[in-house]
């Protein structure tokens, strides 16, 4: 039986981890390789790296960072953020990503997903889906939540799976960064609409939030600030999942 996965997520800009990092016991707060290796040692099942740099130079650094992390990391690496073209995907895969996450570019050109799946396989093609609540449902949002699309998020998840996406990273735009827990109704709606694994992202403040998302259908839990801030460890989160009867790798 597949275990419930925990995926630490690093936001990287110019070769450094960013976003309010307060790592305990580490002088150098923001080296992605150091963080990646530490999370693997804690029991992380995969690592997710999001390139949040806004400039071409920053993106070049991100490719170097992927290569540096790959040299050390012994678990799968998903890279996303700013993936616009086929060449972007190829560059990241060559540098050592195992999966590439696509968000806005797939919404603007859905054939991007089918091209990636055909060339590299579905297991490599991750759809990053941002959704916001709208009268009894969820609307797909893009461009880091700045733009509403008018498109139904559940319908888009179905379409993406048919096009060849092998996994969905689902972020609730209402919950992201709020530490109020994942949007469980959204997780239920998406995970029951597709057969591919769905990763819960955005809103986790504690282990109970992870347990609830897994029980709502999430195959994996993406976790950022509660790990970066040293509130907890991957090991502690896995203890909580196991105590709730979920299978984890330990």
């Amino acid at each position: 039986m597949l275990t419930t996965r925990i995926l630490p997520c690093l936001d990287v800009d110019g070769g450094r981890v960013v976003k309010g990092v307060k790592f305990q016991g580490l002088r150098d707060a923001g080296d992605p390789v150091e963080r990646a290796v530490a999370y693997e040692a804690q029991g992380a099942d995969e690592l997710v790296m999001l390139d949040v740099s806004a400039t071409p130079q920053g993106r070049g650094n991100a490719t170097d960072t992927v290569a540096r992390v790959r040299a050390e990391l012994r678990i799968p690496l998903t890279v996303g953020g700013g993936v616009r073209t086929d060449a972007d995907a190829e560059r990241l895969l060559k540098a050592g990503a195992d999966k590439v996450a696509v968000n806005t570019a797939a919404v603007l050109d859905p054939s991007f997903l089918s091209r990636m799946a055909e060339r590299y396989g579905s297991q490599c093609t991750v759809l990053s889906l941002d959704a916001a609540q709208r009268d009894g449902g969820w609307e797909l949002v893009i461009k880091s939540g700045r733009e509403r699309t008018g498109k139904d998020a559940v319908q888009w998840a179905r379409e993406a799976a048919e096009l060849g996406a092998g996994e969905i990273v689902l972020t609730s735009w209402d919950r992201d960064g709020t530490r109020s827990g994942y949007d469980l109704a959204l997780m239920r709606a998406i995970s029951s609409a597709v057969r591919i694994p769905v990763v819960a992202s955005g809103g986790a403040a504690n282990a109970q939030h992870l347990v609830e998302a897994a029980q709502a259908g999430a195959s994996a839990l993406l976790v950022a600030s509660i790990l970066h801030d040293g509130d907890t460890t991957v090991g502690e989160l896995k203890d909580a999942l196991a105590a709730a009867g979920l299978e984890v790798r330990r």
């Binding site: 039986m1 597949l2 275990t3 996965r5 099942d45 297991q123 996994e167 057969r195 694994p197 195959s219």
Partner: peptide, 11 residues
């Protein structure tokens, strides 16, 4: 299996 691809850790 309910979920395909099998993506993740298994025993």
């Amino acid at each position: 299996a309910e979920i395909v691809p099998q993506l993740g850790w298994n025993k």
